[in-house]
């Protein structure tokens, strides 16, 4: 095992509507190492699910979301990492008159703890992780202009458990399940109609349903190369459907199932530098766009060797 094989795993879900970030793989930074870099994301859809009805919209055309995310992962110990992210997000609709939005989105800071390891000498190892992640909007963006809002504007607290199994030959499998508590959000208007209970709320505060997500991946990981296939699922635990010919609403039930591929490679001439490429496709969903997402990132690992 190369000691520089220090991986961040960040799957950004900005896709159309959602913007949670998760920290869901089974890999850790070594003590005193700091991995940092930028990940560019391009996400687009032309069809979306209005409730369960799939459709396009001539006043939206193609909805594109781009983001550039700074990421940083520091190894406090071999078993305890701190991971932070800060994306800048930009949206655009190819048709209609609605203006795109752009701004810094949510700062996320998480702690990942490897609390269990079982090793079968020379054959394989099994690890489990507990992760707690906090995210909150950094800019005062509006969540009330979906699908062009850059995010949901809630302050989130996620906790997740991850299990990771890897053969010494390089094959691995990873499963991670998370639960995200979302704070209520405030709109700029004094009243809104809630699709879920068909009620006019005479307040600017919107109750946000919590979210469950599942991330499963399997692939090959050895000698500075990671290749994986993955499956991502999000279920919003509550929320209403977009009604016929209506605009999406921040507390809608936004569910999806996605499949993707990820490649990460540590360049042999400069092993501190890694490139990361990923693609994800939405197979099914509810109140979200059927998006195709591409990620490209560059990550650099700095080793703070020798204790000061």
């Amino acid at each position: 095992m190369k000691k520089y094989l220090l991986l961040l795993s960040i799957i950004v879900f900005p896709v159309g509507y959602s913007s949670a970030q998760t920290l869901n793989d089974g890999l850790m930074m070594q003590k005193d190492n700091f991995c940092t870099g930028f990940i560019y994301m391009h996400d687009q859809w032309t069809e979306y699910w209005e409730g369960t009805r799939k459709r396009d919209n001539g006043n939206i055309g193609k909805l594109t979301t781009q983001s550039l995310t700074w990421v940083g992962n520091y190894g406090i110990t071999n078993k305890l990492n701190v991971i932070a992210m800060l994306p800048y997000v930009r949206t655009n609709a190819s048709k209609g008159t609605l203006a795109g939005m752009e701004n810094i989105q949510d700062l996320s800071v998480g702690v990942k703890y490897n609390f269990f390891v079982k090793e079968w000498e020379g054959k394989s190892r099994f690890k489990t992780f507990g992760i707690i992640n906090f995210s909150t909007p950094i800019s005062n963006y509006s969540p009330d202009f979906l699908p062009l809002s850059i995010g949901m504007a809630s302050t989130n607290l996620s906790y997740r458990l991850t299990a990771f199994y890897k053969l010494e030959k390089g094959w691995f499998a990873n499963a991670s399940a998370g639960y995200t508590w979302r704070s209520n959000v405030e709109l700029d208007r004094p009243a809104y109609y809630n699709d879920e209970d068909e009620t006019l709320y005479l307040t600017n505060e919107v109750q946000m349903p919590n979210v469950f997500d599942l991330f499963i991946s399997a692939g090959y990981l050895k000698n500075g190369l990671q290749v994986e296939l993955n499956y991502i699922q999000q279920n919003t635990l509550g929320g209403g459907d977009i009604r016929r010919q209506d605009m999406p609403f921040v507390s809608n039930k936004m569910n999806f199932n996605k499949g993707g591929i990820l490649v990460m490679y540590y360049l042999p001439p400069l092993p501190e530098l890694a490139v990361r490429l990923a693609g994800t496709y939405t197979f099914s969903g509810r109140n979200v766009g059927q998006s195709t997402t591409y990620l490209a990132g560059i990550l650099y690992t700095i080793k703070f060797s020798g204790n000061p």
């Binding site: 609390f115 307040t203 946000m208």
Partner: peptide
């Protein structure tokens, strides 16, 4: 170690239970 994780999860579960309910009328 297990104990710490369980405690942390419990703490955040309790935190998450804090009331988000709104009065609509």
């Amino acid at each position: 170690n297990h104990y710490i994780v369980i405690n942390l999860l419990l703490f955040f579960t309790l935190l998450s239970a804090c009331n988000k309910q709104l009065e609509e009328t």
